[in-house]
Simulated assay, not measured.
Amino acid sequence: MSRSPIVLLTGASGVLGSALLPELVGCHVIALTHRTPVPGADEQLHGDLTAPRLGLNQAAYKQLAARVDAVVHCAAITGFSSGQEATHALNQAGTAQMARLVADADAVMYHVSTAFVARTDLTRAHQGHGSGEATARPEDYLDSKRAGEEAVRASGVPAVIIRPSVVIGDAATGAISAFQGMHGIIHGLLRGLLPLVPVPAHSPIDFVPQDVVASTIAALVREGRREGEVWITAGNNALTTERALQVIGDTADELGMDAARPRMVGPDIVDRLIRPVFIANLHPRTRRRFDDMLAMTALFADGRLFPTSLGQVPGAPAELNTSELEAALRMSVAYMARAKGMTRTPAPASTASESVQVPA
């Protein structure tokens, strides 16, 4: 009888890693941990992606390399406010370290990047706009993820580069291990803190439920895919900004919440009129919140549709249709609202904690 493949999983305590772990049925999973223990893994190994040999002594590193068949690399700094040095240290240098282990192990690498590497031209910095008082710098994150992909390609190891779009909660329940990215915008909308959204009504808002991403990655591992790029996105079926805001507003109404519907405006109007006339005189914390939102939503304003590989991976979920995306968004909105005590309906027993992180 052939043995179970041994998979080293990084980022197992994160949003994608925690969703992926139970999907790796039939695999012996070693979770590489740094601070947080990971329930459900077959083994746990304490290490540091930014240290030589992952922080292991030479004997332990050689033993690990002799055992591993595949590496699923989910670990990353996904926050836009972590700083250029820390972001590149993990997302670029850490990825290069994992590629080196894959080479030493004669294994295959499944590297989780982000679909937004295709939208680096949309950042405010790239378009020559000032960042104002924003702490969010999406250009640092995107540059680091592009550099991470290049590190994988330059290593020459067998590798699949996986590019999910914005990750929301489980399609059926909305549950997620940490609120991130789009949840922050939803929270602001539900609390009435965002009277306007600087994204044109027609712009696509591409998101995918975490279980779809996890199931697709697990299917790639089971298939033994060894090369190529896989886009886990909504593709042509991505909701428009107008429709996504409508779904969020309708869900708030169903939950008995009084959430004002925001106005959609183009970023040019924000820079020419709204920010200098209306935002400049607000409290510094409010200005900073607005500028952070402006930096993040720039990645969606007039964005091109992403390609998608859903429906093309054997054993993985099919392409999501518009109705399925709307239903998943409703579940994520409802889950977050209940978890944060914004409705009278109590949250499930296991709720997510707030995070300042963004799309994977």
Rank of each mutant, 00 (worst) to 15 (best):
T10D: 03
L16V: 15
G17F: 13
H28Q: 14
H28A: 06
T36E: 00
V38G: 00
G47E: 01
T50K: 01
L56C: 02
N57Y: 02
Y61T: 00
Q63E: 07
V68Q: 01
A76C: 07
A76V: 10
F80R: 00
A89L: 05
R100G: 12
L101Y: 01
V102A: 00
S113C: 01
A115F: 09
F116N: 09
A118L: 15
Q127G: 07
G128Y: 02
S131K: 10
R137F: 08
E139S: 07
V152W: 02
A154S: 13
P158N: 10
I161D: 04
P164W: 00
S165G: 13
I168S: 13
G174N: 11
F179T: 15
I186Y: 02
L190Q: 04
P200D: 11
I205F: 06
D206H: 10
D206L: 11
G224Y: 05
G224Q: 12
E227D: 14
E229G: 02
I232N: 10
A234M: 06
E254S: 07
D258A: 08
V270R: 05
T286C: 09
R288S: 14
D292I: 05
T308G: 14
A316Y: 05
R330N: 04
G341T: 02
P348G: 13
S350R: 12
V356D: 03
P359W: 13
